[in-house]
């Protein structure tokens, strides 16, 4: 069975699409057959982050409506043959996706032999977010170490525990916390919530901590998932997170500040 991983957060702008792209790419780099789906109907973005925006012909809604086959709509990644992108529709009709439609696409992907389906959820707790999480086996809740993001992710955790198929069937979606935009230096100064703070408040262990990094913007400028950046802490942190999602144990990296030398302490930097 294909495993469905939803990447969600509640709050917008915390790094859901960046994370979806990197997790999907990380899984593909390990040889898994992966489809990553943009559930943000009306606001297509994943294609840009994956760098395939010029190759979108058919989208998710086209497939749901039977206007295109899944095969026609799946965009094969130019870096990995076993990685495919299903773009969001730019229609303004919010009801374009239905539960039945989504279920059929997921079943067809499963029948096509996909190992992982990564669902990139829209922000908010409206229908799009609900549909993205409904069929999930695992959920990666992306959170910034910041009050509004943490509170929103708690709302999302509540929804995962009640409004998903797994929950309705008496089971549980497996939840993972992923911190992004983490700044160890600010944490050490007492200006930013630490990993432990966020874990304690939400009652969930972090599967990954992605440091604040200029590489994320650079990667998105180029249309390349940041996990593929060479010599990048953010890339290594995503690679660790993917490994942990697959059950490997890895020590957490990039969560302590580099020690500043005497001169930079005095003169700033």
């Amino acid at each position: 069975m294909a495993e469905i991983i939803v990447v969600t957060s509640g709050k917008g702008g915390v790094g859901k699409t960046t994370t979806s792209a990197s997790i999907a790419t990380g899984l593909a780099r390990r040889g898994k057959k992966v489809a990553v789906i943009d559930f943000d109907v009306g606001l297509r973005n994943l294609d840009l982050i994956m760098g395939c925006e010029r190759r979108v012909v058919y989208d998710f809604v086209n497939v749901v409506n039977g206007e295109a086959s899944l095969k026609q709509a799946l965009i094969k990644d130019k870096r990995f043959d076993n990685l495919h992108v299903l773009a969001a529709s730019q229609t303004r009709d919010k009801d374009a996706l239905t539960k039945e439609g989504v279920e059929k696409v997921l079943k067809d992907l499963d029948a096509d032999g996909f190992d992982y389906i990564v669902a990139d959820s829209p922000a908010g707790i409206e229908k799009g977010a609900y549909l993205a999480m409904y069929f999930a086996d695992k959920a990666v809740v992306v959170v910034n170490p910041e009050v509004s993001s943490v509170r929103d992710s708690d709302r999302i955790l509540g929804l995962l525990a009640s409004k998903t198929k797994k929950a309705e069937d008496g089971g549980r979606v497996q939840e993972y916390l992923l911190l992004t935009r983490y700044s160890p230096a600010r944490v050490e100064k007492g200006e930013m919530l630490s990993v432990t703070d966020v874990e304690e408040v939400l009652g969930l262990k972090a599967v990954g901590v992605i440091p604040e990094s200029t590489d994320v913007l650079n990667a998105s400028n180029k249309g390349e998932p940041v996990i593929l950046e060479a010599n990048s802490d953010a890339a290594s942190a995503y690679e660790d997170a993917v490994a942990r999602l697959l059950g490997e144990e890895r020590p957490m990296r990039f969560t302590t500040a580099e020690k500043k030398g005497f001169f930079s302490k005095i003169f700033g930097g």
Binding site: E146, V147, R151, E191, L193, D197, V201
Partner: peptide, 16 residues
């Protein structure tokens, strides 16, 4: 030093 992270944590624990 601004220790605002502690304030954030306390506020979050209450609201959550």
């Amino acid at each position: 030093k601004q220790q605002s992270a502690n304030t954030a944590k306390n506020r979050l624990q209450v609201i959550i």
